[in-house]
Write a protein that binds this DNA or RNA. Structure first.
Lengths: 235, 235
DNA sequence: ATGCTGTTGTCAACGGTATTGCGCTGATCG
DNA sequence: CGATCAGCGCAATACCGTTGACAACAGCAT
């Protein structure tokens, strides 16, 4: 075990050309290449010009590295959110930023869809969402519940998109043509709705879907707050 | 290439003790053991009492097997949905059933979160959701869009839950205690909302979150249909 | 009956993955 | 100046999915 670094004037520059930050940078470079370049320990060593196993001097295992990388990207998302937005704007900005960064680094996005990093920037996200739902008018257990709804749904959706994006071009092309091709060949008697809407199904874009989903979450919060605020009448 | 099976009286019983169905059954048995037993080709061979590579005589690769397994479980979910429910009830039944089966076979649920199987039962799901949103009052592109919202959100959420459930007990225990432990140790000045709501955050259950999320999707459909139906006035 | 053909299971092997233990080296510190 | 020790390279390990060669065996035509 190394002693605490930066204790004295230690690790001035030394022979250590490898630092946690440099490794995270290299990881992001690889992750940005999407499915063209697998994110493996060997590939990472190559990118760093070092032996693959050198990474293990700075991270316990690949999982811990991934968590650190994810935290870095989370930070980028948070810093990109402008000041002065209302609660809906902040949630929308978080959602859009998360999706963008997850599609930029799909390996990271897909791997973290079901994880909690427990690192600094994750707490900032929690704080942001909690602040938003409270500004919307929710309190206590209701605020906590709706925070979880937003956080879990967003993370799951974004991770799913990233994983899908990670598929290589061939597989994705096959998947997408399925919407237009196979839906038209289906038995119209057993599946009348699909038959009738096959054209419309093929034209829905991912952006529309994401926008609609985020909108659904936001308006759920809004309605809940309204119900709790004015329980007297509806109209 | 084999000719079409069951053409004549072929494959009466023959030497073939291994059938696609038997392999799917064995896969589900392994998948049901969750994280205690990895779902590998070798383990599958062991479960079948056969050589691991024998599977490749019936499925092109592991991915195709997984798709078939997933389709089987989808069928179970669909068959468990009772007749005579209104559109909200059908969507709720589909959601609850999907979550249940994904937690029963977490490997399958997590692996399929970002896939489309393009197999018979998937079309039945599409048909079901489309029918529901149309019964709610949506048509054409609006129906297609909201179908995608429900399908994608549900699949992503359920897959996320399954992946999380797949973690071995130790990791999950650490994760869960994080909610109660680390949230209390946080800097109250930088993260006031977390500090204030740490108790409530720890008490939110997964069931509540899922129920709230599905409710949000349903009421988004309801509202959209209402807006389109009566565009005259609101009150 | 005999041989042909095609299916199915077995075996050994290959290339890929993450990870670990050992030995060297070179900067830091007493 | 010599001892220490963190950081790195190397070799090896234990898995993983997948493939190709081979043997057993059914059904079919001769």
């Amino acid at each position: 075990m190394p002693k605490s670094p930066a204790n004295t004037a230690r690790s001035k520059r030394a022979g250590s050309q490898l630092t946690p930050d440099a490794i995270i940078d290299a990881s992001l470079r690889i992750a940005a290449r999407g499915s063209e370049d697998a994110f493996t320990v060997r590939r990472l060593g190559e990118e760093l010009g070092a032996d693959p196993t050198a990474i293990y001097r700075h991270f316990r295992d690949k999982d811990e590295l991934l968590l650190s990388v994810a935290d870095r990207t989370l930070g980028e998302v948070l810093d990109s959110i402008p000041e002065g937005l209302d609660w809906k704007g902040r949630i929308r900005a978080l959602a859009d930023g998360s999706l963008a960064v997850a599609l930029k680094y799909p390996v990271v996005g897909s791997a973290m869809a079901s994880r909690t990093t427990r690192r600094p920037n994750e707490f900032r996200v929690v704080e942001l969402i909690l602040g938003a739902v409270m500004e919307a008018g929710l309190e206590g257990a209701e605020a906590a519940l709706h925070y979880r709804m937003v956080a879990d749904s967003l993370l799951a959706y974004v991770g799913q998109q990233a994983a899908y994006f990670l598929f290589d071009a061939e597989a994705r092309a096959a998947d997408e043509s399925a919407w237009t091709r196979e839906y038209r060949l289906v038995d119209p008697r057993a599946l009348p709705n699909i038959t009738r809407l096959s054209a419309e199904l093929a034209e829905v874009t991912d952006e529309q879907i994401f926008e609609t989903t985020v909108g659904a979450l936001i308006s759920a919060i809004e309605q809940r707050a309204e119900t709790l605020r004015g329980p007297k009448r509806l109209c």
